[in-house]
Design a protein around this nucleic acid. Structure first.
Length: 1137
DNA sequence: TGATAGTCAATATC
DNA sequence: GATATTGACTATCA
């Protein structure tokens, strides 16, 4: 018994704005509070009981007779003592819990202050970011100012303004981000890649700079050390100086409080020095990289570049942060700067001239050859600028330990992963991530040049390369010389599970290991002392990961790339308000989820059908209709809109709450959260995760009605509202899965539908869009004469153009891929094969592929699709038609001979039907009667009974021997109805006559009774849930032991109690599109018991399912022994049904 | 390697 | 032309 309503809990005393920042604490506290309350209640009860007992003891004199006949008083004393003990225990418990509360309060205070600090920092950062949006312009302004000042300077110091001009030119071209000039000499900001590089030769630069160096005032340090700098990578003078320079430059943008003159001077000096050195180097060895590429890239050359890199690094970092916002405009800025910087590399590097051309290669592509050197020198500086939170994956490399570095590319996958998709690991990025900012910028540039911006989120192009993490340094080994691997693993697992981080993501980004390895490590961590140095590395990384507060957030954010990929199609996700600097790319944090979950759950108490967030007018309605930017007509998970939704739903709650539930802490949280951080609101995914129930059937029915009534097609609806294709919409509408069966992703469309339904202008908008499309089509027809009628109107309207404009322009709209079309016979064969073995092994697949003249891939796909679709067709609460795969691979083997024989039967039947002979019964060969499997098939009506036309059989057999003739077409039939029968055929003894035909191809494995087969559970374990309210997790833990919940597809939780209620009382699904026709043939033959299921449209399924249910009921007992808290969905459904 | 969920898009059907 | 079906594919997980 739990203390009842949350509403009865007084809000914690310090429920204020600050506390809102720490929702997890709040939840913990609340829970503890509840527990304390609970225990206290129990203590009181126990006390009462004791009192009662004492009274009884005092007031009664009853006794009982012992064996020896003596009367004895009941031992109330001991009972009282026990109760007293219990009371003590309970009171202790209460005390303990109260202590916990106090502790939590304390810790929360520190947490709050920390959060405040963090917030303040972020605010500052935002301010800085805002200041830097115009970075490029500032930069160029500065450049111009330099030019002006230089001219003045030179004019006063040297009448030879010509040299000043030259110098300026050299300067601007060699050291500043190259900015092309248009005819008017106006800077366009576009890098001039086309300009001949020889335009400014090094000799000329040298000349100019030599001239200038005589003219200019130089610092003594510079004079005396310029040469040394070129030799020594750690020049005493230049490094501090350049750091100073960098600082100054940064300050310029942050404060603008440095006198420009000074800045200019610094620039000039630095540039002159750099250029001087460059020339020196070049003179000494015109082709250094050719002979000593490592030295070249690693020492002098780099030294000079390094300083400029450092100066530009600030830009890079800030722009990268800006880029997090995925704002196209900012992307442009970034791109420009990247281009400029790349150009700078080109210009600044003498290698661009003539023979030394290839010397730039190690810079731009610091991969195979020079990767090591690049990394070694770059990490020195660039590491310092890397995001601190993820420094663990690019462990700080001490100068002294650098030489140990053996990593070839030294990429930092984690830092890659936190880049926005546009910057995520393409080849270049992955390899250059650890390189200098310039290299990174160059990579970005390359990427920008080679990819249209809309490709930013293409999932395939950004697939991270296998991570190669820098090795753990000796220092780190020393630091972690003894770790509790189990503990680490436990914590890591908690983190991964809590934040729904996949093992793959974690492995690739944090450990540099594959998912499989991670799984192994996490499942079976070896004790520290048993590990080799190498084996310890991952644990050290894990430890570092755990110690980095930000790491998990970044990882979560990077995992979110899924969402942007999807949502960016509408610009929705990108519309996320910025303010999420690199360090905090706005993952929906635990707190937020808890918050929203609490709220949603609370809301659901008050509303039967819908989660509160959905009970609202689509925020889109607040936008001017026909707004230029095409968007989904329901918010695609855009936080701002959701904010509205929360507000509205909150409002709704207040209005509609029948129970008048006052402001519970939860709703108060919500309010506060909303006020505090309007932009931190759940996305559609989060809403999906946080919504415990939603009647998909009702939603789809409503949608269908609405579409039908208004003559709106699935296509336009799908594209405009759901971002899905017509086919998908059709499936969704006709076969909506119950909410609890859907993964988070699968829930998304339903959320959108609901949002759309709540939009008061939903129809208007769609009509508007429809009209627009129609007119656009008309226009196109009249003007374009249908010249490029590539895909009818599919991708030619606004919305879909928007959706599909991702496809890069280049290349013809690839010719329509022709779909494989199975003939009826092929289908029949596949169905038969499926009936025999729904999980064919490779050999079987190959056999089938050969037999049917299809590719293995096609066969695999078919099986997969068939399994999935059968599953889908199973009504709610029904067991699926696909038995779980045999865990040990002992599925009754697929027997080619049996397959062929059965197939022959089927084909005969088909031919007969075609020839109008369907009434004539066919005999089956004698052995069939001895083969229970086949007999079962026959019994179920799969196979005809009666006398067989032997001549036909002969001909079919002939056909078979020469390969099946699968060209026939005839009746349709689903094997779905008989596969169960095959499975249910207890004690089958098939495949004994296997062998001669392709026998070698097919393994015959030890058999197992179907009972055992079915009783076995799926080999898949439920995956870690994603975006499930952590609060639920706890409850789940409690509940799951009762076996009433199951995690589906690793992403959603099925409340089987609900489920049972649902299927028994609530929703009886009536499929709008009956699928009966496909099962007609077999229905009459179904000998199973019909359990009077009132689902008309699903009768045949119910029959099957009931049948299977009956069959399986006995297996359930087998399973009941298992104490597995989480069961396979099939099993669960079976149990609940 | 192989399983599942989700989806697209070609094709079929109404 | 709208909708349904279905082969193919990606992403993710174990």
């Amino acid at each position: 018994m739990q203390p009842t309503a949350t509403a009865s809990i007084p809000p914690p005393a310090d429920m204020d704005l600050q506390a809102m920042q720490s929702m997890d604490w709040l939840f913990k506290k609340e829970r503890i509070y509840l527990l304390a309350q609970f225990w206290q209640q129990r203590a009181t009860l126990a006390e009462k009981e004791v009192t009662t007992l004492k009274e009884q003891l005092a007031g009664t004199n009853v006794g009982y007779e012992t064996k020896d006949g003596n009367m004895e008083k009941p031992n109330f004393e001991s009972e009282i003592a026990a109760k007293d003990k219990e009371i003590t225990h309970l009171l202790e418990e209460v005390q303990r819990l109260q202590l916990s509360i106090t502790k939590l309060q304390e810790s929360s205070m520190s947490q709050i202050s920390r959060l405040e600090d963090e917030l303040e920092q972020k605010r500052q950062h935002i301010v800085r970011l805002e200041n830097r949006i115009d970075l490029q312009r500032d930069y160029e302004d500065l450049k111009r100012e330099i030019g002006i000042l230089r001219s003045v300077n030179f004019s006063t110091n040297n009448p030879e303004s010509k040299s000043a001009e030259f110098l300026e030119r050299a300067r601007s071209e060699a050291s500043e981000p190259p900015v092309t000039q248009d005819n008017e000499g106006k800077e366009t900001g576009i890098p001039n890649f086309g300009r001949p590089e020889s335009d400014l030769t090094d000799e000329r630069i040298a000349h100019i700079l030599n001239e200038a160096s005589h003219i200019q005032m130089k610092t003594p340090c510079e004079d005396s050390h310029s040469n040394e700098d070129s030799k020594s990578p750690h020049g005493q003078c230049s490094s501090p100086f350049s750091r100073e320079l960098q600082k100054q430059k940064l300050k310029k943008y942050e404060n603008d409080d440095i006198p420009q003159e000074k800045v200019v001077k610094i620039y000039q000096e630095e540039l002159a020095k750099l250029m001087g050195k460059r020339i020196e180097d070049f003179r000494r060895d015109p082709f250094p990289g050719m002979f000593f590429p490592h030295l070249f890239s690693g020492a002098s050359m780099d030294r000079t570049q390094e300083e400029i890199r450092m100066a530009l690094d600030a830009y890079h970092r800030e722009l990268a942060k800006l880029n997090q916002c995925q704002n196209p405009a900012q992307m442009t800025n970034l791109g420009l700067l990247a281009l400029q910087q790349q150009a700078l590399v080109h210009h600044h590097n003498p290698s661009v001239n003539g023979g030394a051309q290839d010397l730039s290669l190690p810079k731009d592509k610091p991969k195979m050859v020079n990767g090591i050197e690049d990394k070694e020198k770059d990490c020195d500086d660039s590491v310092k600028h890397s995001g601190s939170a993820f420094s663990l994956v690019r462990p700080k490399i001490e100068p002294g330990t650098q030489s140990q570095t053996t990593s070839s590319t030294a990429s930092s996958p984690l830092s890659n992963s936190i880049l926005p998709p546009a910057m995520t690991p393409t080849d270049d990025f992955a390899t250059s991530a650890a390189a200098s900012p310039l290299q990174r910028m160059a990579s970005i540039t390359n990427s920008l040049i080679s990819q249209p911006p809309s490709h930013q989120h293409h999932p395939t192009s950004q697939r991270p390369l296998k991570a190669v993490l820098p090795p753990i340094t000796q220092q780190q080994f020393d630091m972690y010389n003894n770790l509790n691997t189990e503990d680490i693993v436990k914590k890591v697992k908690e983190q991964l599970s809590q934040y729904s981080i996949s093992q793959r993501l974690f492995g690739e980004n944090v450990l540099g290991l594959s998912q499989g390895s991670v799984s192994d490590l996490l499942a079976r961590p070896k004790p520290w002392h048993m590990l080799t140095q190498k084996g310890r590395e991952p644990f050290i990384r894990m430890k570092m990961f755990l110690e980095d507060d930000n790491a998990v957030h970044k990882l979560v954010a990077s995992q979110y790339k899924i969402a942007p990929e999807k949502l960016m199609r509408t610009g929705g996700y990108g519309g996320t308000p910025c303010g999420t600097p690199l360090g905090k790319p706005m993952p929906p944090t635990q707190k937020m989820l808890s918050e929203a979950a609490g709220f949603l759950n609370k809301m659901q108490e008050n509303q039967n059908l819908l989660p509160p967030s959905l009970q609202m007018v689509s925020p889109q309605s607040q936008m001017p209709p026909g707004h230029g930017q095409p968007m989904l007509l329901t918010p695609p998970g855009i936080p701002p809109q959701h904010t509205i939704s929360l507000q509205q739903s909150d409002h709704h709650m207040k209005k509609s709450s029948p129970h008048g539930i006052p402001h519970s802490p939860l709703s108060q949280h919500q309010n506060n959260l909303r006020n505090l951080n309007p932009h931190i609101s759940p996305s559609v995914y989060e809403m999906a995760a946080l919504t415990q129930d939603l009647d998909t059937q009702v939603i789809t029915t409503k949608i269908k009605e609405a579409l039908l009534a208004n003559n709106i097609g699935q296509k336009i609806f799908g594209e405009a509202v759901l971002g899905l294709s017509q086919g998908s919409v059709s499936e969704l509408l006709s076969k909506p899965k119950p909410w609890h069966m859907l993964s988070i992703k699968g829930r998304e469309p339903f959320i959108r539908m609901q949002l759309w339904l709540n939009d008061t202008h939903n129809i208007e908008r769609l009509q508007l869009l429809k009209n627009e499309r129609r007119e656009a089509n008309k226009r196109r027809r009249s003007t374009g004469a249908g010249a490029h009628d590539n895909s009818s109107d599919t991708s030619s309207n606004d919305t879909s153009e928007f959706y599909h404009s991702n496809s890069p322009g280049p290349g013809p709209p690839s010719a329509k891929k022709q779909r494989v079309l199975f003939s009826e016979e092929q289908k029949e064969a596949l169905r038969l094969a499926f009936a025999l073995d729904p999980y064919p092994n490779v050999a079987t697949i190959e056999f089938l592929a050969t037999e049917l003249g299809l590719s293995s891939r096609t066969i695999t796909n078919w099986f997969h699709n068939h399994r999935m679709r059968l599953k889908q067709q199973a009504p709610h609460g029904m067991p699926t038609d696909v038995p779980p795969r045999d865990q040990s691979g002992n599925q009754a083997p697929f027997d080619p001979v049996q397959f062929r024989l059965l197939l022959n039967q089927r084909l005969l039947e088909l031919s007969k039907e075609r020839m109008g002979l369907s009434g004539i019964p066919l005999p089956y060969p004698p052995y069939l009667s001895t083969n229970p499997n086949l007999a079962a098939l026959i019994g179920r009506g799969l196979l005809p009974s009666g006398d067989m036309d032997l001549s036909m059989l002969g001909s079919v057999v002939k056909e078979q021997m020469s390969g099946l003739d699968l060209s026939m077409t005839s009746l349709k039939r689903e094997p779905d109805d008989f596969e169960d029968d095959v499975e249910s055929n207890v004690g089958s003894e098939d495949s004994n006559m296997s062998g001669s035909l392709h026998g070698g191809d097919v393994k015959h494995e030890p058999k197992e009774t179907p009972l055992a087969q079915i009783a076995r559970s799926s080999r898949r374990k439920p995956a870690a849930p994603q975006w499930v309210n952590p609060e639920w997790q706890d409850e789940k833990e409690k509940q799951s032991s009762a076996g009433n919940e199951v995690i589906i597809n690793g992403v959603c939780v099925m409340q089987t109690e609900d489920y049972g209620r649902r299927s028994s009382e609530e929703t009886v699904r009536v499929e709008p599109t009956p699928v009966m026709d496909r099962f007609e043939d077999d229905q009459s033959d179904t000998s199973s018991v019909n359990n009077d299921n009132d689902n008309d449209a699903r009768v045949e399924h119910c029959e099957k399912d009931n049948e299977e249910d009956n069959k399986n009921s006995e297996f359930d007992n087998v399973h009941d022994d298992s104490d597995k808290p989480i069961k396979h969905e099939n099993e669960d459904e079976r149990w609940d049904y």
